[in-house]
Write a protein that binds this DNA or RNA. Structure first.
Length: 207
DNA sequence: CACATGATCGCCT
DNA sequence: GGCGATCATGTGG
């Protein structure tokens, strides 16, 4: 059985009340590292049964396509699972790992260039447990995102959207990516970005 | 605190 | 048939 797809009620938000506007296609088509950094502070949001749920992104990782051994599109790999990575910037790519977890990515660059940003951690609204979304699997579980949502366009006014941040993080940390030790040289690339002031960041903050 | 391990299954070789 | 862009729990220091 695939992970729960019901969002955690403690993540209820009202995008209108928060005064949030969606990020644009142009934003997502930019350089992948710029998008990974730019997503810190943005709100990943999910509509389910007419209600909205959301959290502020505090940790991301960039995956740089065919030249990046850690990326699912490494060496030009193009299978049904990875196909959404080849879509236009602003699409969602969700994959299933370890038999129990979903991980959500935002696709970057124009169509045909298979790069993406993994959403690793987020903070819920006031009142939500600080570590409810502290990890890519937990983030998806808390927002009810599964592979059924893979391939969705974040800009089609659909059930998954990303809203612009209101405040840039004061201090951004950088480190190698987590869990990609098999990727040779690419495992050392400094492609993980996080808000140093957030308690929701997964794993160690240093390196 | 730092490891080590088990759970669990779709995907690719 | 092997393994992973993970997580929770358990052990030992």
């Amino acid at each position: 059985m695939i992970a729960d797809r019901v969002p955690d009620p403690r993540l209820r938000i009202d995008p209108a009340d928060l005064g949030l506007a969606p990020l644009s296609r142009v934003f997502f088509r930019r350089d992948t590292i710029a998008v990974a950094r730019g997503l810190l502070g943005a709100w990943i949001s999910r509509r389910w049964r007419g209600r909205w749920y959301g959290a502020r992104i505090v940790e991301t990782e960039a995956y740089l396509g065919p030249k990046d051994r850690a990326a699912h599109s490494w060496n030009g790999r193009r299978t049904p699972r990875v196909e959404p990575m080849y879509a236009d910037g602003g699409h969602l790519y969700v994959f299933f790992v370890y038999g129990m977890h979903s991980c959500a990515n935002v696709v970057t660059r124009p169509a045909g260039i298979a790069e993406a940003v993994l959403l690793r951690a987020a903070e819920g609204p006031d009142g939500a447990p600080p570590r409810l979304l502290s990890g890519p699997g937990k983030l998806c579980a808390a927002l009810g995102i599964t592979t059924r949502e893979s391939g969705l366009d974040l800009l089609s006014r659909g059930p998954v959207r990303v809203f612009r941040r209101r405040g840039r993080p004061r201090a951004v940390g950088v480190s190698p990516r987590i869990g990609v030790d098999y990727a040779g040289e690419a495992a050392k690339w400094p492609l993980r970005f996080f808000d140093r002031e957030s308690a929701a960041v997964s794993g160690g903050k240093t390196r």
